[in-house]
Design a protein around this nucleic acid. Structure first.
Lengths: 164, 164
DNA sequence: TTGCGATAGTTTCAATTGTAACCATTGAAG
DNA sequence: CTTCAATGGTTACAATTGAAACTATCGCAA
């Protein structure tokens, strides 16, 4: 079998990490996340999960833990831990649903809201500085592209393999 | 003090996780990475760091551990661990530089190359399926946008705060 | 030579995270 | 009324990761 097409690594099978989109996305996302995370860790002792919980509760008060998980793309264990440390820091108030006592109802305390109103501008400021690298139309394009890719990635994920 | 402008969260300070670019990037990147990681974990028992080391050594043989770290955006501890488990699995060969015996020289064994030639097409196949969500010109745009953002993110990172 | 700061890489220990098992409550079925 | 599967959430334990300290070698200087 001379230069078998099956066994040889044809040029289109070559993978350059530098131009491999999943790799590039991962590196970009890590730099960005760590940059922001560093800000609110330093200033408020918040971890990323904690910050996400605060952000979503600022927008949608009285969610249950599971609803928070859905909106933040975290799993319920991560939410549970973030909620516990936020409760301990008195940045959150938890009550339980009358009529379904499994269901918690979470909202920010005054202290929690204060944290939010101080961090949100920092986070948005970082985003703005980041997006300054792009023209207005590029920014719109970016949004659209991320949306499309997210949709497709979820589809692929559910189609094959781990579609639990 | 009726609707104090200072204390209230003005509309441009509001942060919607759903439209916050750093958050969207992070979610997208996680879905994508885990989807691919799942494939090579299942089929070859490779972790993400191990896969990255293999990918870069397939392209550039005889790198030292630190050079691998630079090209994969991993830190040297992660590289050290990945290298150890790849050595144990006999997928890597390590020699030491004559003349500087601190410096290792890493390259794939035959088994390592075999793993590479089987995974690379899977990874590229995934990328292709993902990018099928986009037109050719959108794909070019995506590449350009990621590049610009990466550059800007690194700049911002080094400017302020943690510029170690 | 000896000494010393820098570089390559490893080890150690603590913190974070992920998985699975678990407890409590609910709702519906018998 | 019991029983039992499903749901909300927590706990326990193992695996991963990160930061800092450590070892070994090198290059240069006195």
């Amino acid at each position: 079998m001379p230069q078998s097409a099956r066994a040889s690594t044809s040029s289109r099978d070559k993978l350059h990490l530098d131009s491999f989109v999943p790799y590039r996305l991962s590196v970009l996302s890590n730099i960005v996340s760590m940059s922001i995370a560093h800000t609110y860790e330093r200033e408020f002792g918040l971890s990323i999960p904690e910050w996400r919980v605060i952000a979503v509760l600022a927008r949608y008060p009285n969610l249950s833990a599971i609803e928070v998980a859905e909106r933040t793309a975290m799993d319920k264990v991560a939410v549970s831990r973030a909620v516990q440390s936020l409760l301990a820091a008195r940045r959150l108030v938890r009550t339980y649903d009358k009529g379904d006592r499994r269901r918690s109802m979470l909202r920010l305390s005054a202290a929690g809201r204060a944290v939010y109103t101080r961090i949100a501008p920092l986070a948005l400021g970082y985003e703005r500085k980041l997006l300054n690298a792009l023209s207005a139309s590029d920014r719109r394009a970016l949004d659209r592209l991320i949306g499309r890719l997210m949709e497709r990635a979820r589809l692929l994920d559910h189609l094959d393999g781990k579609g639990s």
